[in-house]
């Protein structure tokens, strides 16, 4: 396929240790390793003036220009956390003559949200949900819709753990047609709404991202898409506390992320309370003689077991 040939070209044009110098701004970047690739281009870890950064490069020059425009516009938002900050934009011609556009951005060192939640516990799902809703709220207020919201485009950076998004290729001005999307996350594919850029489009994709955490292999839509999604939500144990809010998001019931965030916080608050109650019960049981003998470790295990039951 034509696209495959383009990939091969890019992969043979760029390798670690290579120096890439911009045509316009003359800054030189040393390529360290590949961070990832997607539909538009490849992203490499690079170094310039002793600092690490991420460099996205592609021969799809107009798509790259569109992304840069979005990053520029988001960069103007106070206390910018909406996407990586933009450091440089330039062109580069490979030794064999292929012309590329590239841009350099803040390197977000992190791990995937799915692996983070699976390693550190499902209560983190709630934390990241609230963080993401907060960022979406800000983005929507600026008149943008993220569009291609999906696990691939979410990273958890550490200390403190925070979800950040990359790849603004789908980020679209409110009211326009979504620029780029991924089928599994797209409400149009699930026959549950239009592809017009509005906050509820992101909230649908948001929910699909958390569904994807618990169904890593995804699934196809079948003949009753809405029913299927609701069932999958019910069957995902880790999502049980949030499922009513998530269902409303799938059905397009939230016109804004702040509304969804409010209800999400309420749900988390209620679950937390139940959790505390369980802790108290355990405390009382602890006073029973046979449990005293059992020692601290099994008490902790018992508490953890009870809490995890609550979350099922």
């Amino acid at each position: 396929m034509k696209m495959n040939q383009e990939w091969k070209k890019l992969n043979s044009d760029i390798h670690s240790g290579m120096h890439i110098q911009g045509k316009w701004h003359k800054q030189t970047y040393v390529i360290k390793r590949k961070l990832g690739a997607g539909a538009i281009g490849s992203v490499y870890l690079c170094e310039a003036n002793g600092k690490l950064a991420a460099l996205k490069i592609s021969d799809k020059r107009s798509s790259m220009t569109v992304e840069v425009n979005v990053l520029r516009s988001l960069g103007k938002v106070q206390g910018n956390r909406l996407g990586p900050s933009l450091l440089d934009v330039d062109d580069w011609t490979a030794p064999i003559g292929t012309k590329y556009s590239f841009y350099v951005m803040e390197y977000l060192q992190g791990e995937s949200m799915a692996s983070y939640i699976h390693r550190h516990g499902k209560e983190w799902a709630g934390v990241f949900m609230v963080q993401l809703l907060e960022d979406l709220e800000q983005l929507h207020q600026q008149g943008w819709v993220f569009g291609d919201l999906k696990l691939d485009n979410l990273l958890i950076v550490s200390s403190p753990p925070r979800v950040r998004w990359v790849d603004v290729g789908g980020t679209t001005q409110t009211g326009r047609a979504i620029k780029e999307y991924t089928e599994f996350y797209d409400r149009g594919y699930w026959e549950m709404g239009s592809r017009r850029a509005e906050p509820s489009y992101d909230l649908f994709a948001f929910t699909m991202a958390f569904i994807h955490v618990y169904y890593p292999k995804r699934f196809v839509k079948g003949s009753q898409p809405e029913k299927l999604l609701f069932r999958k939500l019910d069957e995902a144990r880790g999502l049980r506390p949030y499922r009513n809010v998530l269902k409303k998001a799938l059905a397009g019931k939230y016109a804004s992320s702040s509304q969804m965030k409010r209800e999400m916080l309420q749900v988390i608050h209620d679950t937390q309370k139940k959790k505390q109650k369980t802790r108290k019960q355990i405390q009382q049981e602890k006073e029973a003689p046979f449990l005293l003998e059992a020692g601290g470790i099994s008490i902790l295990a018992g508490a953890y077991y009870l809490i995890s039951l609550l979350f099922q």
């Binding site: 316009w24 020059r61 107009s62 220009t65 569109v66 840069v68 425009n69 520029r72 934009v89 330039d90 062109d91 012309k99 556009s101």
Partner: peptide, 18 residues
């Protein structure tokens, strides 16, 4: 052509195309 312009100008024109 569009490609011969520096990235900043190209961005403005791409906005018009969009």
């Amino acid at each position: 052509s569009l490609e011969d312009l520096e990235p900043e100008k190209r961005g403005e024109i791409m906005e018009v195309v969009e």
